[in-house]
Design a protein around this nucleic acid. Structure first.
Length: 742
DNA sequence: CCACTGCCGATTTTT
DNA sequence: TCGGCAGTGG
């Protein structure tokens, strides 16, 4: 070891790294360097203690996090005797780890080596089919609800029978029945859904003692990132693997925002009970945000009852006081964000700014504004690349080659591109396959004349022939080449152009992108024999976030959920209103409200230097206008002073709000965007000047006016005052003699 | 079989 | 407001 791993760590971090044996819980608040701690700890295990790298497992929730850790560890490995060791550490997401486990050892549970994975779209479709076959009304038993119910049950390691016995109400009762059929069909198709990856892995380790022992030895040291987000299945898996108790979990209960996905915050809160004699280290030294931002966030999160108390302190200096903008409406808010972002861009690149919102739909107005002003932006997430129709279509072809029983893939390609096979034929195929007990793919050329017309039969045979040819090509060609053949043999581009002329170019580009992805994969791949299977697995387990291009200088737009784990110099948190954040659906339950609060907290703590919060009193929701929107309770909790009502005068001069002719006459207000009072809590040094936004102030030269806002702090504090006679002026508080008048 | 139209419903979405 | 869908006429 040529390098002191402890040199660049603070005391708490050192303690966490040093403690290598037995259970360890690291409470890592936002921006306290948890990735640094995990990677240093792993490096310490390898290079100082001498643990073979292949005995170390590190599990994360996202591919991105896993990659980040891997590369950080690689950085630490440079210059050591064995820099390659980092490559041998098993960094993986839970799901990828499980897929790996099942590919290699799932046979005993009836999991085929070449299983394919159903994504959300596939499972929703399957549920709809089941509803139809059971003659249930989809509006009563909504597929999304049923899907959530099933997913939830699986994450809690409960089967259809468990759901049935605890059912209260018809949805759950029928849900259990649907669940049962759902499972049957997945097994019949040789496919797993996301949760199955966890469920079967748990079952595997529970049933096979030898495998359990094997993996306990193989992974003698286990690390888990974002432990607060683990669900019951994941927790159980960890318990099975970590019988040796060398389990190090890192997390922050204040950032638990996935309970609706089955994550159980109690996993982290009761770690010490689950693993007696566990060491607990709390990281509270923040390296990311200004103290003002941390304090604001703390005031909010402090209102949660179910949390371990901790408070972040920063080393970082500078930054502006967080500010609140009270907007007239959504357009005004968007306008404010855009203008402020542009101002900021003089000193901060757009790529270091972000706009967060509670629901994806909120991005629209912002996008319009950004477009109108020519501000470069990127919506993070949105419709993922892998969920694009064209991508899914082509992947479905690959899936059906790997797993002929994959019905979701089959129904996707059956009439795509259009080859004149309709619902009637599809139903006949499905029926025949069911009674014959073989996959539909195998049956294509065997449907007899009594069920389908000669013309249709010809089409089916053609498709069958196509698949035979492709299957042969699959064994010979690289994946990219195979994809190109699929596209050319099916005239896929013609189909795309015809079915969606407007979106053709973008879709074609996505297909090209898929070629590139395939090419990349082949370049990286070490095992050509199972290439197609692992390619598909990668496609299923990858998300849009994994391909985000961070090189361009664009401001990022994303939901609060998507913001976790990121940081930006400037953050805009929009739509701070009751009903939006906290979301209306959380009003009934204290637990859900606390989760909304954590969401708010996550958003705030992403900001390094500047945090802008905004809310509007009037907003259009689903095309209907509401004028009595109440500001979010979180603003109160944050200690922000909220203007009573938006009552400012507007000259109608709206920055960038394009003329909207169908909007009717707008309330005439006098120079609204400029003359709005912006209230923010002032720190001591700034408050010492004795004036605060909203005050009526007197100046020796300019006379009386309204203090609109204060930017900067202490000696740098600048007041914007709207003087009755002299108009708007910017004045340094340190020089200008402003006095409050009542 | 496919294109059009009217109606319903509308969080968040690591994998 | 807008997108996804079920139902209907060509």
């Amino acid at each position: 070891m040529t390098r002191d791993l402890f040199a660049d760590l603070n005391e708490a971090q050192r303690e966490a790294v040093r403690c290598v044996e037995g259970p360890l819980l690291i409470f890592a608040g936002a921006g306290t360097g948890k990735t640094r701690v995990i990677t240093h700890r792993i490096a310490h295990l390898i290079y100082d203690i001498g643990i073979p790298a292949e005995h170390i497992l590190a599990v994360t929730f996202t591919n991105k996090a896993a990659e980040e850790m891997r590369s950080r560890l690689a950085g630490l490995s440079e210059g050591t005797g064995d820099p390659e060791a980092a490559q041998r550490v098993f960094f993986s997401t839970f799901h990828r780890f499980c897929a790996w486990l099942l590919r290699n050892h799932g046979e005993s549970l009836g999991v085929k080596r070449h299983f394919t994975i159903y994504d959300d779209a596939d499972t929703t479709l399957l549920i709809k089919q089941i509803l139809k076959s059971m003659d249930l009304d989809p509006s009563l038993y909504r597929p999304a609800v049923i899907s959530a119910l099933i997913d939830r049950a699986k994450n809690e390691l409960r089967g259809p029978a468990d759901v049935e016995s605890s059912a209260d109400g018809p949805v759950q009762e029928k849900g259990a029945k649907i669940f049962m059929e759902y499972e049957r069909r997945l097994r019949e198709n040789g496919v797993l859904d996301f949760s199955d990856l966890l469920v079967f892995s748990v079952r595997l380790l529970q049933t096979s003692e030898s495998l359990r022992k094997h993996f306990q030895e193989r992974f003698a040291f286990i690390h888990v990132d974002e432990y607060q987000d683990t669900n019951t299945a994941q927790y159980t898996l960890l318990r099975l693997l970590a019988e040796h108790r060398n389990l190090c979990v890192v997390g922050d209960d204040d950032q638990a925002i996935y309970s609706w996905r089955g994550a159980d915050i109690r996993n982290i809160l009761s770690f010490e009970k689950d693993f007696p004699n566990a060491r607990v280290v709390t990281l509270q030294q923040n390296y990311r945000s200004s103290q003002a931002i941390l304090d604001l966030a703390y005031r909010v999160i402090q209102n949660n009852r179910e949390r371990a108390d901790k408070r972040l302190m920063t080393t970082r200096t500078g930054g502006d006081a967080p500010m609140l903008y009270t907007a007239a409406d959504g357009y005004d808010e968007a306008s404010f964000v855009a203008m402020r972002a542009r101002d900021l861009s003089a000193e901060t690149p757009y790529s270091d700014m972000a706009i967060f919102y509670r629901t994806a739909a909120q991005s629209r107005r912002i996008e319009e504004e950004m477009m109108a002003r020519g501000i470069p932006y990127v919506v993070v997430s949105g419709v993922g690349f892998y969920e694009r129709r064209e991508v899914k279509d082509l992947l479905a072809y690959l899936r059906i080659l790997v797993n002929p029983a994959d019905d979701a893939a089959f129904s996707r390609i059956l009439n795509v591109p259009k080859r004149g096979i309709g619902d009637t034929t599809a139903a006949a195929l499905a029926e025949a396959a069911k009674s014959a007990g073989i996959p539909q793919t195998e049956l294509l050329s065997r449907l007899d004349q009594s069920t389908v017309s000669a013309a249709v039969r010809k089409k089916l045979v053609d498709l069958a022939d196509l698949l035979v040819v492709l299957r042969k090509l699959a064994a010979e060609l690289a994946i990219e080449e195979l994809l190109r053949r699929i596209v050319s043999m099916t005239n896929y581009f013609d189909y795309l152009e015809k079915s969606d002329p407007a979106g053709f170019e973008e879709r074609a580009a996505n297909v090209q992108e898929l070629y590139t992805v395939a090419q990349e994969f082949t370049r990286r791949s070490t095992d050509p024999s199972g290439a197609l299977v692992s390619f598909l697995e990668e496609m299923s387990l990858l998300t849009d976030a994994d391909r985000a291009d961070s090189s361009a200088d664009r401001i990022s737009l994303m939901t609060l959920h998507a913001a976790k784990g990121l940081e930006f110099s400037a953050v805009f948190l929009i739509g701070m209103e009751e009903g939006t954040l906290p979301h209306a659906s959380s009003f009934e339950s204290e637990a859900e409200l606390e989760e909304e609060r954590r969401l708010c907290y996550v958003g705030m703590t992403r900001a390094k230097d500047r945090l802008f919060l905004s809310h509007a009193y009037s907003r259009k929701i689903y095309g209907e206008s509401f004028d009595d929107i109440r500001p979010s309770r979180f603003l109160d909790e944050a200690g922000l002073e909220i203007p009573e009502q938006f009552s400012v005068i507007d000259t109608g001069r709206r920055f960038g709000s394009r003329h909207r002719p169908d909007e009717g006459p707008r309330r005439r207000v006098d120079d609204a965007s400029a003359n709005r009072v912006v209230r923010v809590p002032l720190d001591e040094d700034t408050a010492a000047f004795g004036v605060t936004p909203g005050d009526r102030v007197q100046h020796p030269v300019f006379g009386a006016g309204i203090l609109l806002r204060i930017t900067g702090r202490a000696e740098e504090a600048t007041a914007l005052v709207n003087f009755e006679r002299a108009g708007r002026k910017r004045l340094k508080l340190a020089y200008a003699k402003l006095t409050r008048v009542d």
